[in-house]
Amino acid sequence: MTDEEKRLVDLLSSMEEDEALALAKRMLLEDHKDPIRVLELCRLAMDAVGKLFAEGEYFLPELVLAGEMLEQISAIAKPLITQSGGAAAKKRGKVLIGTVHGDLHDIGKNIVCFMLDINGFEVKDIGIDVPVKTFIEEINAFQPDVVGLSGFLTLAFDSMKETIAAFESEGVRQGFKIMIGGGQIDETVRAYTGADAFGVNAVEAVNLCKKWLEAA
């Protein structure tokens, strides 16, 4: 890695937004560096951010800003990618995530999606207030390894239970693991809903997926 490349990774991972964006723009637009390489550097920086989050050094504000910086650089870099080469990096596994019906909350779910994405999972976010039927359709189409059900309100306990019961009755339950998360979720709710595991934050969600995919 060149000094300039290292500097971009350092600026991104230390939340120096203005300098990081200025450097990325110069590399892409003035020096015509390979946009795929610049995006790889972003990925390395996001790995570092994720690690700092997992270690308790970084918190939600850093994840949000990191996501924003990545989005801005991607918006410049992606139109510059002309060649079709460069096979997509192999993904660790597929995770389908949605907030269960009756609940409109999405901040926690979005953070989990971001963390899974930067940890190499292929994530499909199907939004909020997701009906049981939509979950089933999306599962059949996406064939996930893990399904994540999110919910912040106490009404989500019953929505999760109903959604998981429908996975059973529709005969799709065996194909994946189920994790649940959200403000009030704990072991009592996990047992009540029939999920395989619960997590209280995005790091736990990533660790669950890693554990399940490595064991598979």
Binding site: T154, F157, I185, D186, T188, V189, Y192
Partner: peptide, 9 residues
């Protein structure tokens, strides 16, 4: 008292 226990316990 936890919401999960109050609702499902």
């Amino acid at each position: 008292l936890s919401p999960s226990m109050m609702t499902t316990g």
